[in-house]
Design a protein around this nucleic acid. Structure first.
Lengths: 168, 168
DNA sequence: TGCCGTTGTCTTACTACTAAGTATTATACA
DNA sequence: TGTATAATACTTAGTAGTAAGACAACGGCA
C-alpha cells in the first residue's frame, strides 16, 4: 500500500526543481555540507576560546606566535586570513591585554614584529592542549586513517578556488 | 651534499615545538585546511553574487525560497544558519530590494512567511546557473567519484561538533 | 475559562571585522 | 642620483552580522 506521510512532502506550487546535472548537484551538496561542518566546528572552537576572553582570530595569532616565534604583521595576516586593517586592530587588542608586544624590525623600518609576552606565552601553554582536544574530538567524525586523504583533497579545493578567476 | 636553503628554516629561538600526538596533529591540520578551503570558496561565491549586489546570506535565502517555495522565517533561519535577529534584518533588506515579500500565516498569527516576488524569482533564475558553475568548478578539487564520500564524512563532522558539549 | 511555559518575530545595542585610502619606507630603474 | 613603483602598517568610516531581551500569540492543562 502507498504510505502517506503526516507532513505532506509534495513540493510547494511556488517551488522550482533545481535543473542541474548530477555532477553540479553533488558539488553544491558538498559545498553546503562543508560550510555547515566548518561553521559547527568554528562555533565550538569559538566557544572554547571565549571562556578565556579570546576571539578565534586572536587565539589564532597567539598560537601562530607561540609555535613560530615572532612574526611580521604581514606574515601573521596571511596566516590568519584577515585584512590589513584587521591585523593591526587585532594586535592592538592583544597588546592592550598584555599578551603580545610589537617590536621594530632592524632591516625594514616600515615593518613591525608581533611577539608573545611572557603572559601571552603562559596563556597559550595553558589553553592550547584543551583547545586542541576539542578540535580533535570534533574532527573525529572523519576516521583517523582518512584524515590525511581528505586534507589533501580539501587543500586542492582551496588552491582551486584561490586560482579561479573572480568572474568569467 | 647537505643542501642549505637560502631562507633559514631553523626554528626561531622563541618558537615552541607543538607537543601533541600525531592523531591530534592530523586533526588540527585538517581543521586548518578545511577552514582555508571553506574561506576560499566562500570568497569566490561572495564575489560572484556581489556582482548582483547580493550578500552570500541574501543569495542563500533567495535560493532556498526559489527551490522550496515560501518558508516561515524560522525555517529560513535554520537553513541559512543565521541568528533570529539576523533573519529579520536580511529579509528586510531583500524586501527593500523588491526581491522578497512577507506573507502572514493563516494558522499562526505570530509567524510570517517569506516568499519571492516575481522580480526575485527572475533574479534567481538569471544568476543561479552561473553561480552553481562557479561552486562546481571550485569543488572540482575533489574528484567527482570522491565527493559523495567526503560529503558523508563532513556531515558527520558537523553532527559531531554540534552534539559536543560546549566545554568540558 | 484562565494561567503558564513555549514559540516566532522583531528591536536595540553592540562587535568583530572589512574596504578604501594614507603615510612612510624600501626597491627598481632611467 | 633622483624618481616612480611597490610594500608595510595604520586610520577612518562603514557593514554584516550577533546577543540579549521584549512582545505577541499559541497550546497544554487545571
Amino acid at each position: 500500500m502507498p504510505t502517506t506521510h503526516p507532513h505532506s512532502d509534495a513540493p510547494h506550487p511556488e517551488a522550482h526543481e533545481p535543473d542541474v546535472d548530477e555532477r553540479t548537484a553533488a558539488a553544491l551538496r558538498l559545498w553546503v555540507i562543508m560550510s555547515r561542518a566548518q561553521a559547527a566546528v568554528s562555533d565550538l572552537a569559538s566557544a572554547d576560546v571565549a571562556r578565556h576572553g579570546l576571539t578565534l582570530a586572536e587565539f589564532g595569532i597567539l598560537e601562530a606566535l607561540y609555535h613560530r616565534g615572532p612574526m611580521l604583521l604581514g606574515e601573521v595576516q596571511k596566516r590568519i586570513l584577515v585584512s590589513s586593517g584587521g591585523i593591526t586592530f587585532l594586535v592592538d587588542r592583544l597588546v592592550a591585554k598584555g599578551l603580545v608586544e610589537r617590536r621594530t624590525c632592524e632591516s625594514d623600518r616600515r615593518a613591525r614584529y608581533a611577539a608573545l609576552t611572557a603572559k601571552g606565552e603562559e596563556l597559550v601553554r595553558d589553553i592550547f592542549p584543551a583547545h586542541a582536544a576539542v578540535i580533535t574530538r570534533a574532527m573525529a567524525g572523519i576516521p583517523s586513517e582518512d584524515q590525511q586523504h581528505v586534507a589533501d583533497m580539501l587543500r586542492d579545493v582551496g588552491r582551486h578556488a584561490a586560482n579561479l578567476p573572480p568572474a568569467d
